[in-house]
Design a protein around this nucleic acid. Sequence first.
DNA 1: GAGCACTGC
Length: 893
Amino acid sequence: MSENVQTGRGKRRRRFSESEDENVESQIGDVETQETSEENGSTLQQERPKEAENKEKIRQNVPSMDNLRDKSRKSYLKQRQLTKLEELKQTLNEYENNLSNLSDKELQDYHKKTEIFKTIQGALQQYEVDIPLYSLPEVSNTNKKTKYDLLHQNHYKQEQKESTNGKSKPGQYAGEQWEQEQFNRAKQISSVNTDKINLPGQEKNEFVFDESQYVTFDSGDQLTGDKDPETTTSSKVSAAERTSIDDVRKSLPVFKFREQFLEAVKENPVLIVVGETGSGKTTQLPQYLHEAGYSEGGKKMIGCTQPRRVAATSVATRVAQEMDSKLGQEVGYTIRFEDKSSDKTIIKYLTDGMLLREFLNDPELSHYGALMIDEAHERTLSTEVLLSLLKDIVRARPDLKLIIASATINATKFSEFFDKAPILNIPGRRFPVNIHYTKNPEANYIQAAITTIFQIHLTQPLPGDILVFLTGQEEIETMEGSLNEAVAKLGSSIQPLHICSIYANLPQELQSKIFEPTPPNSRKVVLATNIAETSITIDGIAYVIDPGYVKQNVYNPLTGMESLVVVPCSRASADQRAGRAGRIGPGKCFRLYTKWSFYNELELNPVPEILRVNLISVILLLLSLGINDLINFDFMDPPSNDTIIKALELLYALGALNSKGQLTKLGRKMNEFPLDPMFSKCILTSSKYGCSEEILTIIAMLGESGTLFYRPKDKREQADKKRETFNHELGDHFSLLKVWQDWEATDYSNLWCEDNFIQYKTLKRAKNVREQLARLSKRVGVESEIDKTSKEVPPLMIQKSIVSGFFPNIVRLSRMGDSYRKLKQNYACFIHPSSSLYPVKPPPRMILYHELVLTSKEFMRNVMVVDEKLVKEFGSHYYSIKDLESATNKVKK
DNA sequence: GAGCACTGC
């Protein structure tokens, strides 16, 4: 068990002593401490003799307490539910009395609420009992303690919270003891019931799964061993296999719809295609379009966008095989850093961001005869902007055919957006997945997930691996620890359970573990983040456990601050997750929340990215396409005016816009770079100061800095020490430059990276980015310094270049000297402890940050020392005299 | 003395 957990226990115990239920709670607290001391070996030994006595008391006391709590909680929940239902009914009545005068929005709301009302009523009748409400733990990243508590929270504590009407009270939990009991009980079950997992005893902690099957998938014909063609990427095809390829093409569900599809395309400028995984739409539809002549005999291309690079490359490979052509000829792909297409290319797969870039050179996309926007339901930022732009183009170009491919869930929204475009449904080919909900809300999903893993393992047949969706690295590591501990305790009494984890920041060599085949007579448990929802497919998964949460980035345009928050996932995501169980055969998905909450507390779809991010780059792109009326631009979901206005203000301050709001020459140059305009400005300025090489490096490195240093659990101190050797007195920008220069001096050595606890993969990515930026710099006329040999650039020149783009991000030390304040806005922020300036005493008076994130505090990540003179030199148009004066006064006290 | 889900140009 990790240090963290032990510290946490200590905290919890302290609170027990303040508890009202002094008797029971302090005893349990003691037991916990006892168990901690067993692992710890050193602390609190004096409490050991009490153990037996305590456990006995718990056995006597806890059940009665539980009964009381349970009763109180149930009555509260029932009452609350009835009240809510009544409120809903009233709202509906009001709407109904006024139906003819409702606005579109109100009408929408009315329909939504009617649906909700019906669902609840239906559910009530079905159960004939009170349906517990799903209480979402209060997740807040601003409060570390709360987050911590949530992570390690136990069931009893939450129960008590609820029974006292939301008032938080200290709680208790004999966690491991309870787990042990659960395992013991589970082990006793001999009969295997594959349709229902049901553990006797301990009623309120058990999972009694509702058998009703919610997501129904078309099971199609017998498809044993038939893989999803969209992700198959076998490399070579022999002549003998050709006929089988054609057979496979014809056997795909989409084949039966070929004529219907082409007919609809002929009749309509825009067609919405709904096709579930395995329908073959991604590989087949572009081919159909080509066969039907929309490529005009090879004069025009059929384009198909994908949100992810791997999808673009692998699908293109597959289709090249199907068309018996070499990849990069008739069939090709284009992704950043890699263009496998040529003049001959007829069918081109590309990332959505890449097509957006193509708009800049060819605003009418005249090279394309037809375009398919695949996975549109994901609504990535690029897809979203593409859809708005395409809506316009299709009107101007009747010869262009547009196909929007989406999952079922929001097809109508796309149809509405494209003037009621027709929807073509293509059934998928996936095995059925039974969805099980918990009967009662689960307060602590970590505990619940662990229990469910063992329940599955002990009651469900082998083989069949388990996939658990968690929110992040911290959770995964905590859970991995607990599971391994439990497995070790159970020893040979159960079949082997292999725990492995996957998240994007996990170094490559550790990621591969999840793809190793599970040994016979054992089971694999994969703990994953969202990465397993769409980006990575793991073979052999038959069971999915879904606690129903995601970690999401939220941007606040007013403060310019980003924060990562844990929120309930959407119904669309939940279904996507469930689908992961049905790839090898019929599967099961266990949702750790109630059916009621699925329909009432989860949003239908995730919040589109466009509403959650800094839009400055998008706005610049749109402006350069001649779209000036951004407030009235036809977004599917318009971003807030605040976001747009903030972006415009910043662009103006950077010199990308003139006072009339028109794009300047500088703005056009900035747009050439696939970067935040603040970065582009730095590059463009650096030319003047003769340091563009250094600036390019710093910018490429800043983009990757989050995953640059690797800290293995067992070698943290060593890793931190190595990291300190790169620290530069002027800050992180210069530290990153040093890392790069040292790596460059070793001729980009992998070994050097290992020695310094630096991720090679990350540096290579930075190298790619840097090369691209260098190419683009040359194109827009940034002076190249490549010929310059070993002439040391004065740091001041580098600082100047950076300040020219990042002047809005300057902060000064507060009078107290404990925090920093922005020059314009007066709120506190702090240097992140990972920064090279963190240990500097006294702290620098004025610094500039790369990003501001809200986690446990308002932290500035990647900071650089700045002189006041530079602020005056580069920020006088942005800051008022007062802003600057007060800076001088406050700093020079 | 903190801790960053996931993409993409």
